[in-house]
Design a binder for these strands. Structure first.
Length: 729
DNA sequence: TTTGCTTATCTTTTT
DNA sequence: GATAAGCAAA
């Protein structure tokens, strides 16, 4: 170990450029490293850690923090690979994870039990929903914001330190009429959490901040324990995190922050890249170092990504130059539709693999998780296995939540939300009866006994008693967590089978997976916390290494691959149509595009489908993303499948259709639905008309939803009647 | 009081 | 096409 680090020390100067070297050798005090994409940000951070350890610093006095789980894992991994085993003793991870660990120890200071429960976002939403209902804010005719919107509002208020009415006025001006009700609900939500020992994601940060503020001895201890504080992806922090950093560095100001304002993509949850600007103000005497050399990619790719970010309205000026020579231009693939886009990507991936590129060195990135659904089926068909990151989490699935709520009720029978969910599983037991059961439990000395002795004449009573009996016996048994979960699954199974009769075997398998994970824990509360903070991936059982990666751009932050495909680069998808009305959000989408494009080391493919399937409206023409238009001609090479004439024609159709969007909504989708309800009544030889492809003749009716049609102008296409409309002439 | 049927609304990114 | 809310029937 000793020699490993010694060797490192000698070669530091050779392995790093002068800016990186200065940062690594920085002797303490506040340091801000502003760095472009691929400039070796994390590398610099990690080498500094290694250097400190070489010089005899205790690894456990170093705290490394960042925002996302993936970035945190990569950061710690790389630290270990550079600095050797000693670096594994470095403390760190996500801000949320760190706050959780601190709070477990100190929550009692602010009146929380050490075994407080962490709520994930859907828990928060459920609670808000329940309270809104109780306060009768929801109801017919009242255009009250949905629970999701409320949750975002509350989070924004918590993160920014603003009053809730300021948030509503500033971001949801159309809801100002409800401002009174929203404030009342916000207060009710906070009171409920306080009364029941619950913390949502924002509370983890806020409560820890409060402790740091109100108990100077705690912040003193923390700053004595962690003498070196380093934060990666500083542009993703919000004002709460910035303040937390300040308080944890108290007296020593030994903070290193690394970030890139051009890669700020989390402002939707309160992150503010101006934090970087304010860092020198917060820590007077900050030394600022810029890293402007790009090591990741080649000059042609860099020319393209520089052009993308050049249009950003606000940014620190950085002039990134490539360290690597050679390379080819990024390729723009213009596909007919998403099907063709998928075929192109699968084909290209196969070619790269044949040429000897490891599948794990290839990634496909997209704006939103559902954009890749089509590609996933194509990959499965081609026999290419992949790992998908981002999007729907396993713990969000209904059956998993059912089981989690069962466990929660066992630990805390008066957990009203979980109890409610569990009771509603029982046949002929609705909200009213659930309320009755809950009231009986609250009144009783022992809630679980009240449950197992519940009396009444209704049909559901016996099942309620059975559940109570089971929970009672389990809470007294000496079974380990895995065993307990097994028993819970046994109780849940009949409900699972009747509710999800079509796919319960798959769900049962996932429940077993969850049970297996739980078996690694001795403490149910720890297990539940981890599920909220570090949920297992849906296909965790599979071997992760060496596989093709499909990922949302957000989850790809900080990572790099030899070959990167960006798909769905059309208006409405990317930029997302939700961002269309806000210049600030368009700016964020642009930065997101920049982050995506800068993940490529060697080959970058930009894919644009001329037609996309839009839910409810069927196949729709799509214009290329405005970000593609912004890239100067000559910086990218354009490629098409099939004949160019066809593509041009569909392009024209797309432009024409896009000019009159009103015509696309309404009628067509209604007719499509009618066709779907009637089933597939098309027969070979039928003359039909399609809103986009024009007139054609039915070749074959494949099954209930698919028809193969030979269009006079557009050629043969297979259409899904549930996605598109087709009229018989 | 529960359940089944109809209608209206919305569809992102992460901790 | 999913989901939540509203309404009427069991």
């Amino acid at each position: 170990m000793e020699s490993h680090l010694k060797k490192r020390e000698i070669s530091l100067e050779r392995e790093l450029n002068s800016a990186q070297y200065q940062a690594v050798m920085h002797q303490g005090g506040p340091l801000l490293v502003i760095a472009g994409a691929g400039s070796g940000k994390t590398r610099t951070l990690v080498y500094r850690v290694a250097r400190l350890i070489t010089e005899g610093e205790d690894p456990s006095s170093i705290l490394l923090l960042t925002f996302t789980r993936k970035a945190a894992a990569t950061m710690l991994e790389r630290a270990a690979s550079v600095g050797g085993r000693e670096c594994l003793k470095v403390h760190g991870g996500t801000f949320h994870g760190f706050c959780h660990r601190m709070l477990r120890r100190h929550a009692h200071l602010i009146g929380f039990p050490a075994g407080f429960t962490i709520m994930d976002q859907s828990d928060s939403q459920d609670l808000i929903h329940l309270l809104a209902r109780q306060l009768e804010f929801t109801g017919k005719g009242k255009k009250f914001p949905s629970k999701g919107v409320l949750c975002t509002m509350f989070s924004k208020a918590a993160n920014s330190g603003c009053m809730i009415d300021e948030v509503v006025e500033g971001f949801y001006p159309h809801m100002t009429g409800h401002i009174q009700a929203i404030s009342t609900l916000f207060q009710a939500y906070r009171d409920y959490k306080k009364a029941h020992g619950l913390m949502d994601y924002d509370d983890l940060l806020l409560h820890w901040l409060r402790i740091l503020r109100e108990f100077p001895e705690v912040s003193q201890t923390v700053s004595n324990t962690y003498r070196h504080l380093m934060i990666d992806e500083y542009q993703d922090t919000n004002s709460v995190q910035a303040e937390m950093v300040r308080l944890m560095a108290v007296g020593r100001n030994n903070v290193m922050a690394v970030g890139d304002d051009s890669q700020s993509i989390y402002s939707f949850r309160g992150a503010n890249f101006k934090n970087i600007l304010d860092f020198p103000k917060m820590f007077p005497g900050t030394r600022i170092i810029k890293l402007e050399k790009n090591y990741r990619t080649t000059q042609p790719n860099l020319d393209c990504t520089n052009a993308i970010i050049a249009n950003a309205r606000q940014k620190f000026t950085k002039h990134l130059t490539a360290h690597r020579a050679g390379g080819s231009k990024p390729v723009l693939f213009v596909g007919m539709d998403e099907e063709e886009q998928a075929r192109f990507i699968v084909q290209s991936i196969s070619q790269f693999i044949e040429k000897g590129v490891e599948p794990g060195e290839i990634a496909v990135l997209f704006r939103a998780a559902f954009h890749s659904f089509g590609l996933e089926t194509h990959l499965n068909r081609a026999g290419i296995s992949f790992i998908k990151r981002g999007g729907m989490r396993l713990v969000d699935a209904a059956h998993i939540k059912d089981l989690i709520c069962l466990l929660r009720v066992m630990i805390n029978p008066l957990d009203r939300l979980s109890l409610n969910r569990v009771l509603l599983l029982i046949d002929r037991l609705g909200p009213k009866s659930a309320e009755k059961v809950y009231r009986a439990m609250v009144k009783a000395e022992s809630p679980l006994h009240a449950l197992s002795d519940f009396s009444g004449r209704a049909a559901y009573v016996q099942e309620v008693r059975d559940l109570g009996g089971l929970l009672l016996s389990l809470s007294e048994s000496s079974k380990d967590l895995g065993g307990l979960m097994g028993e819970l699954v046994k109780w849940y199974r009949p409900h699972l089978e009747s509710r999800y009769f079509d796919d319960y075997p798959k769900r049962l398998q996932e429940l077993e997976q969850l049970r297996a994970i739980s078996a690694n824990y001795s403490d149910a509360i720890e297990f539940l916390s981890d599920l909220a903070l570090d949920p297992p991936e849906a296909d965790q059982a599979k071997d992760e290494s060496g596989k093709l990666i499909l990922s949302t751009i957000h989850s790809a932050k900080g990572l790099e691959w030899k070959v990167v495909f960006l798909m769905g680069l059309c208006e409405g998808r990317f930029p997302s149509r939700f961002a269309e009305n806000s210049p600030d959000e368009i700016e964020e989408e642009r930065r997101l595009f920049y982050v995506a494009a800068t993940r490529a080391k060697d080959h970058l493919y930009l894919c644009y489908p001329s037609f996309i399937n839009v839910q409810g409206a069927g196949l729709m023409p799509a214009r290329p993303s405005r970000f593609l238009d912004e890239i100067p001609e000559g910086l990218i090479e354009v490629k098409r499948f099939g004949d160019a004439a066809m593509s041009r024609r569909t392009r024209e159709a797309a432009d024409k259709k896009a000019a009159s969007p009103a015509a696309l909504h309404g009628k067509h989708s209604r007719r499509a639905k009618t066709a779907h309800r009637m089933g597939n009544e098309f027969q070979a030889g039928d003359r039909v008309r399609h809103s986009i492809f024009g007139k054609g003749t039915v070749v074959e009716s494949i099954d209930k939803v698919r028809v193969k049609v030979l269009f006079d102008a557009a050629g043969e296409k297979t259409l899904r009647l549930d996605f598109t409309s087709l009229f018989i002439l």
